[in-house]
Amino acid sequence: MSAEYVVHGAAGSGSVPVEATLTLLGLPYRVVENAPWASRAAADAVGQVNRLRQVPAVILPGGELMTESAAILIHLADRHPQGRLAPAPDAPARAQFLRWMSYLPAQIYSMFWVRDEPSRLAADAAAEKVILERTAQRIADCWRMMDEQVAPGDYILGDALSVLDLYVAVMSRWTPRRKVFYQAAPKLTAVVRRVDADPRLAEFWARRMPFEGAWEG
């Protein structure tokens, strides 16, 4: 039994929105740094916690394991409602919150299991190139479809920051990166830039996912 959250993750990865959420909530946590795509040893280390060898994997203070970034984010927001990082279960915005929190991993995040190692599905190098091109296009198309169906205020669901905004801010940095995202999702662009500039996360972003250089594309 521990008082802290233990986050198995890596800088720039899907653990970052979880870490950002814990930071905003002021909850004690530590990161076990392992990027499973970087080496066999790192993948094996993550595999000791999550058999899928994927991050994030979080050990809750009670010792229970949670995986799947969207589930972790929803759990944290709901478990700590004082942080106001998700609409309440009976709030009008709750349905759309759940919709987009499910959409992101199902339609976009899932593409990166393929992109990180296209040889998993490709027969040869030529096929790998096609997979990378088509998954990048698919990701851009999904951002475009989301953008067409939201009506943001300062943030995606209105005037309050939620874990959905943190999730999008991080994922939009991944390939095909922000320049493509800005073109595909003009309404979401102002939202992610606002999240980037949140002073409460300035030190965190600088340490875990610096918003400069290659992240823009």
Rank of each mutant, 00 (worst) to 15 (best):
Q107G: 00
G62L: 02
G158D: 11
A127E: 15
A91P: 02
A71C: 15
A77Q: 05
W100H: 07
E64K: 10
A136L: 00
W100R: 03
S102Q: 04
F112K: 10
A38G: 02
D78Y: 04
D141K: 06
L161E: 11
I108A: 03
P118L: 10
D147C: 12
D165W: 14
Q137N: 11
V163D: 02
H75W: 15
R134C: 07
I72W: 03
Y109D: 08
V31R: 11
S119G: 09
Y103A: 00
G26S: 07
E68F: 06
P118I: 08
A136G: 13
G158K: 05
A95I: 05
R79V: 05
P152F: 04
R115A: 12
L73F: 05
V114A: 14
G153L: 12
A38N: 06
A38Q: 15
E148C: 02
A77C: 10
T23G: 12
A77H: 01
R53V: 09
A122Q: 13
Q54L: 11
R79Y: 03
R138H: 15
A35S: 12
P118Q: 10
R40D: 15
L24I: 07
D78M: 06
R94S: 04
F97C: 05
A86G: 06
G62I: 00
E68A: 06
V32L: 13
L121M: 14
G83T: 01
Q149R: 14
Q137T: 13
F112L: 10
R138F: 11
L65A: 07
R99H: 15
G158T: 05
G26E: 06
L104G: 01
A43E: 11
A42F: 10
P92C: 04
I72C: 01
Q137S: 11
L161W: 11
H75V: 03
P36K: 10
S69D: 10
L24R: 09
T67C: 14
A71T: 08
D124L: 04
M145D: 15
P36Q: 09
A57C: 04
P81S: 07
L76G: 03
A95F: 04
M111V: 01
A71G: 12
A106N: 04
S110R: 06
Y167E: 01
G158A: 07
A42M: 07
S39F: 09
Q54D: 01
A86T: 10
Y103H: 08
L25H: 14
V31N: 03
R94T: 11
Q54F: 00
S102M: 09
A86R: 02
